[in-house]
Design a binder for these strands. Structure first.
Length: 484
RNA sequence: GGCGACGUACCCAAGUGGCUAAGGGAGAGGUCUGCAAAACCUUUAUGCGGCGGUUCGAAUCCGCCCGUCGCCUCCA
């Protein structure tokens, strides 16, 4: 098995990846708060981790991928009495809070599906794990790491000396420059809520040993990740804005509860920017995935995101997406060309002439270096160029079996790992046998017309097909077609 | 104020001590072609924000400066 290196936020270094249990990987990624449609920024995060999971599977690991859905809502703004996000949305839309959460959870899955992400193995909802969260809070209180005061429960950061080890912050320094009004019932300004007392008008609330309330901002991830992956697991991922306070607090809660390391490798993706400023809800500079896919091919968005490293920020622009679209088409054209070549080449045992091994080595080397998808794509374009060159040179053609081998390699790397080959391009371009036969007849007629130099009618057929999304390419070996 | 990043060609973006600084897009010229598309060939950074330093050797390490951004409040 190859040696994989992963950048660990905890050590701020690339580390050799060695799972806790050989052959198995447990990974938890912070999922969305389902109160609005996802935007391109979310796409970067979830596509990055999707590819990470896919690559781990490609390497042969049995991966359990857990990603939560936050559907209990959390405080808005700095007021203690503030409505939570989901309740606010529910009021604005005149819906049950759970209806809002359900609607946007479905929207989220739709978006991820269309972008080609494989669904997590478990998508636990915070609302379905209130009991587990209460249990964990109770343990923290019993161990003296948390305290209850008037229906609120806070984590006592001074009881957890390692608080700050992920984000490099120090408890003493957190006091200075805090932008938020400090709740008066906290023992220390940096103490964070495990359980919040609900105001009477608060809609999402549950019974607990401390009265009616709702869980704090960070406890769901601690309890759900450890429930499904164990008290120590391999990888925890999320956006880098979650390093502090979210992940720092998760560590405090989990390690405080179980007295053992929480996570071996912390991974954080960088953000999508627009004119170099973070794409986000508050700035209103976001574009939803639903809007983006109306404009660009979903896989072009995926390709755009994979063109940069997951730890780099990526600037969103029309120009960049147009470039990505053209780049993706180059890949798709190539897959069609291989398919056509396989169909037309006779079976002969020829010497292998395609640089397959070199490509797979380069691809793996790139991915093994902290999932460098940009470099993996560069390796992909190298082989595309080389193979195109070989196919252009009619004197020395690869045999059928080698072409099939090439197709297999591309499906594994570009397809299974990067998720950039749509089903049509993976198998064949067909969308049904009837359609194929129809196209055969049509192209045969058009070929006759061209032989008779009746270009006017021939072009009319091509234009007509083009308008319904079928593009025709005339090659020396006959016409080839492709459905968008 | 504290913590942390980043600045590579017209655009996007890899590369973090040593062959001629990946790859994609765009532009220009060419091959092929009825045209179109695709593909191929040639071409576009003696230089990687600036100035010093370390080194036989730096885009890559160190220092200072300039610029941009993120986190410190829910946030992918």
């Amino acid at each position: 098995m190859d040696t994989l290196y992963i950048y660990n936020t905890l050590s701020r270094k690339k580390e050799k990846f060695e799972p806790i249990t050989p052959g198995f990987v447990g990974i938890y990624v912070c999922g969305p708060t389902v109160y609005d449609h996802s935007h391109v920024g979310h796409a970067k995060s979830y596509i990055s981790f999707d590819v990470i999971v896919r690559y781990l599977r490609y390497l042969g690991y049995k991966v359990k991928y857990v990603q939560n859905l936050t559907d209990v809502g959390h405080l808005l703004g700095d007021s203690e009495e503030g409505e939570d996000k989901i309740t606010k949305k529910a009021r604005l839309e005149k819906l049950e809070p759970m209806e809002v959460a359900e609607f946007y959870a479905r929207s989220y899955f739709e978006d991820m599906d269309i972008l080609g992400n494989i669904r997590p193995d478990i998508s636990p909802r915070a609302s379905g794990h209130i009991i587990e969260q209460i249990d964990m809070i109770r343990m923290l209180i019993d161990k003296g790491l948390a305290y209850e005061t008037g229906g609120n429960v806070y984590f006592d950061v001074r009881k957890f000396p390692e608080y700050g080890k992920l984000s490099g912050r120090k408890i003493e320094e957190l006091e200075a420059g805090v932008r938020v009004e400090v709740a008066e019932d906290k023992k220390h300004p940096a103490d964070f809520a495990l359980w919040k007392k609900a105001a009477p008008e608060h809609l999402m609330k549950w019974n607990s040993p401390w009265g009616k309330g709702y869980p704090g901002w960070h406890i769901e991830c601690s309890s759900m990740s450890t429930k499904y992956l164990g008290e120590t697991f391999d990888i925890h991922g999320g956006g880098l804005e979650n390093i502090f306070p979210h992940h720092e607090c998760e560590i405090a809660q989990s390690e405080g509860t179980f007295d053992k390391p929480f996570v071996k490798y912390w991974m954080h993706n960088n953000m999508v920017t627009v004119d170099s400023v973070k794409m986000g809800k508050s700035l209103k500079n976001f574009i939803t995935i639903k809007d983006a896919v109306k404009r660009y091919m979903p896989l072009a968005i995926r390709y755009f995101i994979l063109m940069s490293h997951y730890r780099s920020s990526l600037d969103f622009s029309e120009k960049a997406l147009d470039a990505a679209t053209t780049g993706l088409k180059k890949i798709q054209n190539f897959m069609v060309r291989i398919q056509d070549a396989i169909a037309s080449v006779d079976e002969t045992s020829r010497q292998p002439i395609l640089p397959l091994e070199k490509f797979e080595n380069n691809f793996r080397a790139a991915m093994n270096d902290d999932f460098n998808t940009a470099q993996a794509l560069a390796a992909t374009f190298d082989i595309i160029s080389e193979v195109n060159k070989i196919l252009d040179d009619k004197k020395n053609q690869p045999g059928k079996s080698e072409l099939q081998q090439l197709q297999g390699v591309m499906k594994k790397t570009l397809g299974d790992v990067l998720g950039l080959i749509s089903r049509e391009h993976a198998e064949s371009k067909t969308s049904g046998e009837d359609f194929d036969h129809l196209m055969d007849v049509l192209l045969d007629v058009r070929s006759d017309l061209r032989k008779e130099k009746n270009f006017q009618i021939a072009d009319k057929i091509r234009d007509g097909l083009g308008s319904i999304g079928v593009s025709i390419k005339d090659t020396p070996d006959g016409a080839s077609w492709e459905k968008e």
